[in-house]
């Protein structure tokens, strides 16, 4: 497996986490690719147009990349904050459709704004890393931080409030949870993560255009989470890694690969309706790990 594919898989896992965050509190938002595109444009514009970010020639300094990621995440988060309240009043499939519309609006804007390079987009984005391996290490670190935050969420009252809203929004409100605010936090966090990922991806792909945020991408990123499972962060991460790799791994079979890919997306939910990672399987895994660790603890007691 080459480093470039690995990098794409990691980016897929980050996007899957972005879809997972609103779903964790029951909100089916498909806006992730829109925010991903926004983040990418921020990085592309800054690093090709602003000398302070551009660095020398084809390389760009790491601090500039970090600043672009912060700004890309911030802009995506601000957009989410601005539109979140009214949009999140919609439920279920209506929210999904509204967020697809948002992705379309952002796509058309990106195509037509005077500074985004039209259909061709923006080229020659400088590289902070010489090899794909550098990207892989950096993205791995980012994915580790994002996963750690999602893991911490399980122990926080915010995480419990999100789970409560997912199960029963009205009951959650009646125990004093500010449900609009909690949903907004999840939506903004999702946008920030997508924006950060986009800023990184723009450098990796070296060029950026409006196709980054399309309806297709909305469906693909949703498939990551459906396939991996939406209950626990490990599910979307695995789903994102696997479903990004699959089309590439299937390349040898030629045209058949899209059919096979489609079949996997179709059969996954049929055989694993809750996704690959479920509470039961996690408990099973924890029991196995606990047992082996238990043995480890006992060993020193019997010398």
């Amino acid at each position: 497996m080459d480093a470039a594919l690995l990098e794409q898989m990691l980016l897929g896992a980050l996007l899957a986490l972005s879809v997972y965050l609103p779903l964790r509190c029951g909100q089916l938002s498909l806006a992730t690719p829109g925010f991903y595109a926004v983040g990418g444009y921020v990085a592309a514009l800054l690093s090709t147009g602003v000398p302070a970010f551009a660095g020398s020639g084809a390389t760009s300094p790491l601090p500039a990349l970090l600043a672009e990621m912060a700004l890309g995440g911030a802009l995506a988060g601000l957009i989410a904050l601005a539109i979140g309240r009214p949009v999140l009043r919609l439920r279920g499939i209506y929210l999904a459709i509204a967020t697809i519309a948002l992705v379309e609006i952002l796509r058309v804007l990106n195509l037509n704004l005077p500074f985004t390079g039209g259909a061709m987009g923006i080229f020659g984005i400088p590289q902070p890393f010489e090899h794909a391996g550098g990207y892989v290490l950096f993205t791995l670190a980012l994915l580790a931080v994002a996963s750690w935050l999602c893991q911490r969420l399980e122990a926080l009252r915010l995480g419990r409030a999100m789970a409560a809203i997912r199960d029963d929004e009205l009951a959650a409100a009646s125990v004093g949870i500010d449900t609009p605010r909690t949903k907004l936090i999840a939506f903004v966090a999702s946008a920030v993560l997508a924006g950060i990922t986009g800023a990184l991806a723009a450098h990796f792909f070296n060029s950026w255009n409006a196709r980054a945020g399309s309806f297709d991408a909305s469906i693909t990123t949703l498939a990551f989470v459906v396939f991996g499972g939406s209950r626990f962060w490990l599910g979307p991460v695995l789903g994102g890694l696997a479903l990004t790799a699959l089309p590439e791994l299937l390349r040898p079979v030629g045209d058949l690969r899209l059919i096979l890919f489609g079949a996997v997306i179709l059969l996954g939910p049929l055989f694993f309706p809750q996704g690959l990672v479920t509470a039961e399987r996690l408990r099973g895994l924890a029991a196995v790990l606990g047992r082996s660790r238990g043995r480890g603890h006992q060993a020193p007691q019997t010398p």
């Binding site: 419990r160 789970a163 409560a164 997912r166 199960d167 029963d168 009205l170 009951a171 959650a172 009646s174 209950r231 509470a279």
Partner: peptide, 8 residues
């Protein structure tokens, strides 16, 4: 009609 957080 009982509205517990059933998955918790």
């Amino acid at each position: 009609n009982l509205r517990l957080f059933e998955s918790l």
